[in-house]
Computed example of a mutant assay.
Amino acid sequence: MTALTTNPGRPSYFALAVWLVVTFAFAAIGAAGSATAPAFYAQLVRPEWAPPAWLFGPVWTILYTLMGIAAWRAWREPGAGRLTAALVYLSQLVLNSLWSWLFFAWHLGAKASLCIVVLWLAIAATMALFARRDRLAALLLVPYLAWVSFAGVLCYRIWQLNPGLLG
């Protein structure tokens, strides 16, 4: 753990790289579950306000980058609560990856909708824990929470519109 620890006021760019790699590793796990997403998404009945499929990749790339930076900022602050904040952060990454598998790979609309609610709660908990350590770390997760809020509504609506495909 010493390689990831920093002196206050002196950022560790190795630790930043580690947090980005960890975050994008979970992104890759989710992406594996989304391998057939473009074709599947195209065949779904979607509300008129649903974004085009091409938008998801760039949005998630930005969000995962912000998430990794937020985790690094929270981690680099010494003191109690660092491990708890990191574990809650990692748990929301697991839920995020799981959602992709539930929705795109396994076509389980109800479970994906439930997962995204739990994911939202885990992000909110992560933000609260990060805010105690570094206010900017919590603020960097605001776009993520906003996108997952939108995605949750979209997920539920698509599930309702496609009971045969997302039973």
Rank of each mutant, 00 (worst) to 15 (best):
W120E: 04
L119C: 09
A74Y: 02
N7V: 10
L63V: 12
W54T: 02
L141K: 01
T36K: 12
A128G: 10
Y89S: 10
L145W: 13
V45F: 04
K111E: 15
V117T: 06
W75Q: 00
P11F: 08
L145K: 08
A131I: 03
A131S: 14
A17D: 14
Y64M: 09
L16I: 07
S91N: 10
Y144C: 01
G167C: 00
A25W: 12
A39P: 00
I158K: 09
L139Y: 14
Q43I: 04
V153W: 12
A53L: 05
L165I: 08
F130P: 05
G68E: 10
K111T: 14
I69H: 14
A32L: 14
A138H: 12
G109Q: 03
V117H: 02
A105N: 01
I158W: 05
G167F: 00
L139V: 13
P143W: 13
A131C: 06
F103K: 05
P47M: 10
A39S: 11
S100H: 06
S149C: 03
Y64G: 12
G152M: 04
G81V: 01
Q92N: 10
L139I: 13
V118P: 05
A3E: 14
P143Y: 11
G30H: 11
T126G: 02
A80L: 05
S97E: 03
L44I: 10
G68D: 12
P78I: 07
A25E: 04
G109I: 04
V148F: 01
S113G: 09
L108M: 14
Y89H: 14
V88H: 01
A85H: 08
A112H: 04
P38E: 08
A122V: 06
A122T: 14
I29C: 03
P47H: 12
K111P: 08
F26K: 02
E48K: 09
T36V: 07
R76V: 11
A50M: 03
P78Y: 02
L129E: 07
L20N: 08
W54D: 02
P143E: 05
A124E: 10
A86P: 04
L161P: 13
L93I: 11
V45A: 14
I116P: 00
V59Y: 07
L108C: 06
R46L: 12
T2A: 15
A28L: 15
M1S: 09
G81T: 02
T36G: 09
Y13T: 15
G152C: 04
R135S: 14
G30V: 09
R10G: 00
K111G: 10
I123M: 06
W106Y: 08
L129F: 07
V117S: 05
G167D: 11
A74N: 01
V118S: 06
G81R: 00
V142F: 13
